[in-house]
Design a protein around this nucleic acid. Structure first.
Length: 265
DNA sequence: ATGGTAGACCCTCTA
């Protein structure tokens, strides 16, 4: 019987390629709930036995080659949604929502959105897809918050909320992760009354969760904060602490993201 | 120096 529930989010960049890293981290940290992104495999190919052997129930929304999200929990999982509402034609596996351990959780893999411009200098379709997806997320979350329940919306938001969250704000100003149109939509989401767990525990600072594989970004600490755990008011009332576990990023065969976690009383 | 790395997978796309 534990007095707190620990929840982590981690973009693993292929669950199959990352399985040894994921298993060792789950054994060491043993979060009660884990939100995974970028499985890069169909649900049938998820390494179910290896994860279940660690004491987790598993719910997945997979896709071949790209995207794919999952929820792991030591408690039973009741899946609510396996895609974000608002566009029936959207085939990308970027959202799964469930009840577990008395909490509504979602694992979110928000579209990257780059490149932002096409060859004519107009908004690229990938950027417009990101903005549309964020609008859909905001609409959905607005409805969720009417339930007055503990909700944790975690994942790779592909969004750096402010310049302090980016190692080179000027150089990356035109990235979809930093563009004002993206940040405005994220602010709309936060202004619904959500709490960013890392803001509360670590305050304003360069608390990165992602470092590019290229140009020695990890060794130079050229990172971005784009992975977030957002809490509804009822979850924030139970907030205990949060952190970023940089350990997995330093290892061989690492994901380019590292886990972000929080605990609720 | 217009680069570089990683993963899936069939060769180029996504990040």
């Amino acid at each position: 019987m534990t007095s707190t529930t620990s929840i982590a989010t981690w973009n693993v960049n292929s669950i199959k390629a990352r399985l040894p890293r994921a298993v060792e981290w789950l054994k060491e940290f043993s979060p009660d709930i884990v939100l995974l992104q970028e499985l890069k495999c169909v649900s049938e190919a998820f390494p179910l036995m290896e994860i279940e052997d660690l004491g987790y129930n598993v719910a997945t929304a997979g896709q071949k080659t790209y995207n794919g999200v999952a929820i792991l929990s030591k408690s039973p999982i009741e899946v609510e949604l396996t895609k974000l509402p608002g566009d029936a034609s959207d085939e990308q596996a970027r959202y799964i929502e469930a009840f577990t351990a008395g909490i509504r959780v979602a694992s979110i893999y928000l579209p990257n959105g780059n490149p932002t411009r096409d060859e004519d200098g107009n908004d690229h379709e990938k950027f417009l897809y990101k903005l549309g997806w964020m609008d859909r997320l905001n609409t959905h979350v607005k409805g969720l918050l009417k339930h007055d329940e503990a909700i944790v919306l975690g994942g790779d938001y592909n969004l750096a909320p402010a310049d302090v969250d980016v190692f080179d704000p000027k150089g990356l100003a035109d990235e979809a992760l930093c563009r004002p149109e993206s940040r405005a939509r994220f602010r709309t989401l936060m202004n619904m009354g959500l709490t960013n767990a890392i803001d509360v525990s670590l305050g304003i600072g360069s608390h990165y969760s992602y470092w590019d594989y290229q140009r020695g970004a990890w060794n130079k600490d050229n990172g971005l904060r784009i992975d977030h755990l957002l809490l509804s008011p009822q979850a924030a009332d139970r907030f205990d602490e949060a952190g970023i576990d940089k350990g997995p990023r330093a290892k061989e065969k690492a994901s380019d993201h590292t886990p972000v976690w929080c605990t609720l009383r």
